[in-house]
Nucleic acid binder design. Structure first.
Lengths: 332, 332
DNA sequence: ATCCGTTATGTAATCCGTTACATTACAGAT
DNA sequence: ATCTGTAATGTAACGGATTACATAACGGAT
């Protein structure tokens, strides 16, 4: 591979001149520039970005950390991040952790050692305190999934309130016996949605049957497992509030396999409003979150941080909205 | 941020010694090592990987290029890539192009300039010749989607044969009038599947009605649009062969919206066997491809390339298999 | 006491750019 | 002819690590 020296030699100029041509191009004679450019072409030269980044102390790359790309939800969030990043000439790289702390630490290492200028965390397996300790001084924003023990700017919806509203929606449709399919304590969003669920049920004077509160996770498989367990208990609730659309889809599919039809026999509500929820049969009643905007705003904050400012506000709660579809019907 | 010099100074040793402690640790007195380690901890030092990578001329990172993560199909392929990479201490970064050549060129730049040791291309928007010109000498493997004008090792299934078998399956179920929902000429996989479709139809002496051959793309939206157009012609085929499961799901949903039920009124066959195809209602009859293995094998090849060897074989055709589910029923 | 071979450590070159600073050339002013 | 300021270009320091090579220290053999 050719280096800048080779180019300089071939063009008969100094490396500084080559660099000037490569970058702003100020104060270079047209004739000189021509020579340099033709040398670049002849040698098929591309500057080694490691050298450049090392010197400039910036890479103009940002990392998006998430546990899996198999949930469509993230894809629009990432799109928002990317479009905002592109406007400032940043590139986005996605790192998947698969819920493996070791893999995640690996990515943290890249951040600590300046391989990326900053990161947006969509999920994390690590403890907030550990993240805080490891990443102090490094520009990081959390989006969707927020750990308060990791003090960074963040953007998210109000998960608890959204869950309250979703639960109330089910109650207003006449459902009394309502189950909750969550993802356990690990994820704040799930915890808060469960909180909202419990709060609203209590507020409505409705009992919560704990065997209908199941924590299998966000994915399709989680929905299937939760529904299986639900079927094991003799009686079914009127409705189930699921922590995600993927979970809801899994649940509906599993129930259908046993002849329990949604929404005829039981109503199921999702969360997120991913594409699947529109397309699924029955289409899934859910809570929309502004995925693209979450991503875009998070990236805006990150750019501020990278620029050395503290973004204000440094926490942003965006709107959500219930989307009525087919999977929830009035209790008759 | 502390540098190796700071550590060396604090520990009262030279930078070489610090580096030795950091790396293999050969020939360092236990006492010296202790001092160095405590200095590292005191300064919260992490080596700057830009410096290291520059010197070592390797980054141990590989790039996976794809156009979107919203199609689940890729997620298992990527998993295969990652697991193979992890065994050799490589990290995987995902770059999304969104079908935008400009974004893709951006990632090519990273490859050309040594920011990554190599890449697996799952899709590309660019012309094979341009890729070949830009990336000569850079370790690249293509997987799933292969451009023959870009001469790299690759791994894929035999798309044409798979499509032949899928079409024959439909024919054997008694379907005569069969449509094809493809993704146009841009993607080789779609082209080859269409080829297989046409070949088999001709072989069976069945006419192809060109208004039932629609090229809207791989995604859910594509399936919906294609189905809409199908509905615009008065008559429906007996069955439709879709280029992907997501496309099939979109089509089924759209048809259902107009009261056309799958498989009662029309059969729909997908391709890929992503999770969605099991979960969807009706579940989607499809052609399985070994997603994980494709990724794993592609990464094995890439590692060979990075090691300076030519992988042999340097093209790998893996098995596929029809999976029978609910969306195709015998024509009565 | 001398020499040799390890082992432990240090010095400095190197990777490849960018950029502060130095130098040269030249046009225009005096 | 001399001076000054600006434009064009070059030289070398620098970013932060790794590593080839040099050196020092020390134990053991002669």
């Amino acid at each position: 591979m050719a280096t800048i020296k080779d180019v300089a030699k071939l063009a008969g100029v100094s490396v500084a001149t080559v660099s000037r041509v490569l970058n702003q191009g100020e104060n270079v004679q047209p004739e000189t520039e021509r020579k340099v450019r033709s040398a670049i072409k002849a040698l098929r030269y591309s500057p080694n970005l490691l050298g450049r980044n090392l010197r400039r102390r910036e890479t103009r790359k940002i990392l998006v950390l998430l546990n899996t790309i198999s949930n469509q939800f993230y894809s629009r969030v990432v799109r928002g991040i990317e479009e905002c990043a592109a406007e400032q000439e940043y590139s986005v790289m996605i790192g998947m952790t698969h819920g493996d702390p070791k893999l995640e630490r690996n990515f943290l290492e890249m951040l600590k050692t300046k391989l990326m200028d900053g990161a947006v965390f969509l999920t994390s397996e690590l403890d907030g305190a550990e993240l805080a300790a490891q990443l102090q001084g490094i520009p990081v924003v959390q989006a969707c999934e927020v750990q308060s023990t990791f003090p960074t700017p963040w953007v998210s919806i109000d998960n608890r309130r959204a869950a309250c509203e979703a639960t109330r929606y089910l109650v207003e449709k006449g459902h009394r016996q309502i189950g909750f399919f969550g993802a356990g304590d690990t994820y704040g969003s799930s915890r808060q949605r469960e909180e909202g669920f419990r709060l609203t049920m209590e507020g409505a004077g409705l009992p919560i049957r704990e065997e209908w509160v199941l924590d299998e996770g966000f994915g399709v498989g989680a929905g299937i497992r939760a529904a299986e367990r639900l079927l094991e208990f003799g009686s079914l609730p009127d409705a189930v509030f699921c922590v995600s659309d993927t979970c809801a889809a899994g649940a509906i599919r599993c129930l259908a396999g046993e002849g329990v039809l949604v929404p005829r026999d039981i109503s199921v509500m999702g969360f997120d409003n991913i594409r699947l929820s529109e397309v699924f049969l029955p289409s899934i009643t859910t809570t929309w979150q502004p995925q693209y905007e979450i991503g875009y705003k998070a990236m805006e904050m990150l750019l501020r941080l990278i620029g050395g400012e503290e973004p204000s506000p440094n926490r942003l709660v965006l709107e959500h909205r219930i989307i009525e579809r087919e999977s929830v019907s009035p209790k008759n």
